[in-house]
């Protein structure tokens, strides 16, 4: 396959995924627009029947029947997926919420952290200590500290409307806090790297036209540095999508949690975890695809690292 057909296949698959995911969420939030909330869009039973029928038809035909057996297995998996995907969709929604909130809030914290790390004097050490401590300890331990050791959960419980309608309950917000703090430390490091990659002459030139130091950082250095950091953000989105699964351990009903709950109900661990893996993969590919697009949109002509100049190498 050529590069462009691969890309078309990927975009097509993602389009199907999001069409389904969007329809699923709308349907379930608004109490069953197309079908009853939480019910499959199409009845999986006929597919399951077809699978069983095929399998019975070729039973005992030996090697000849094998390819038909594969089709039967495929149909079996399909009917299974159709049955449980609605459950996983609800979990995937929380995965998306966690990822997006943590990335955005994390960015808001990361920009000043990075600036302090590079340009600060006292704040340099504060930022450095925060970044290194967070990056040097496991995310799951951080979540446990927030959830079990601090009264965050109780504070969130006091906030009105939390947990009602489509507003997620308090544990989700504890997780958002945890992922935000974690992500801020990583994003600060990415941005620091990009700031240091920018010619110091840029800041000197900014000062020479009369901008203050902070203005120079704000209007000249950061706009360039943030563009350079985009490839790292792609990694960060991917990282958060995957590691948001850890929220399952502080009772958040995200994608992994949903798959595990379903698996305990029917003991089909392999099928459900593989199904979850496929959904994670779709989310991860969506993240990289979107970031690719963003990178193209904000590219500065002639500035390396922002266009797709590097891609010509392969």
């Amino acid at each position: 396959m050529t590069r462009s057909t691969k890309r078309a296949v990927r975009d097509g698959a993602l389009a199907v995924f999001w069409l389904w995911f969007g329809a699923r969420l709308l349907n379930d939030w608004f109490g069953g627009v197309f079908v009853a909330a939480g019910e499959p869009f199409f009845d999986p039973q006929p597919v399951a029947d077809a699978s069983t029928a095929l399998r019975e038809a070729v039973a005992g035909t030996g090697v000849l029947g094998e390819p038909v057996g594969w089709v039967a297995n495929g149909l079996g998996s399909l009917s299974f997926a159709m049955t449980y995907l609605p459950d996983l969709a609800a979990g995937a929604w929380l995965t998306v919420v966690l990822t997006i909130f943590a990335t955005i809030f994390g960015l808001v914290l990361a920009v000043p952290l990075a600036a302090a790390r590079v340009y600060g004097r006292v704040t340099h050490w504060v930022a450095l200590a925060f970044i290194e401590l967070i990056r040097g300890t496991p995310l799951l331990a951080q979540l446990f500290v927030l959830y079990y050791a601090l009264p965050l959960s109780r504070w969130f419980a006091a906030v009105p409307y939390l947990g009602s309608g489509i507003v997620p309950e308090q544990a989700v917000w504890v997780a958002v806090v945890g992922f935000t703090i974690n992500s801020a430390a990583y994003q600060a490091e990415y941005i620091r790297g990009s700031i240091e990659g920018i010619d110091p002459g840029q800041l000197v030139a900014a000062r020479s036209i009369g901008l203050s130091r902070v203005q120079g950082i704000r209007y000249v250095v950061m706009p360039q540095a943030l563009r350079f950091a985009i490839p790292s953000w792609t990694n960060e989105l991917v990282y958060l999508t995957k590691y948001s699964s850890l929220a399952a351990f502080i009772t958040v009903g995200e994608l992994f949690h949903a798959a595990r709950a379903a698996a305990y109900a029917n003991y089909r661990f392999l099928d459900l975890f593989l199904l979850a893996a496929v959904v994670y993969l779709a989310l991860v590919l969506s993240a990289t695809t979107v970031m690719e697009w963003v990178r193209g949109r904000v590219a500065i002509p002639g500035v390396g690292g922002s266009g797709d100049g590097r891609m010509s190498a392969d």
């Binding site: 590691y243 994670y280 993969l281």
Partner: peptide, 11 residues
């Protein structure tokens, strides 16, 4: 690389 380590461990 696209699958969470938690899912890989669980599988």
């Amino acid at each position: 690389r696209g699958t969470p380590i938690l899912v890989i461990i669980a599988i």
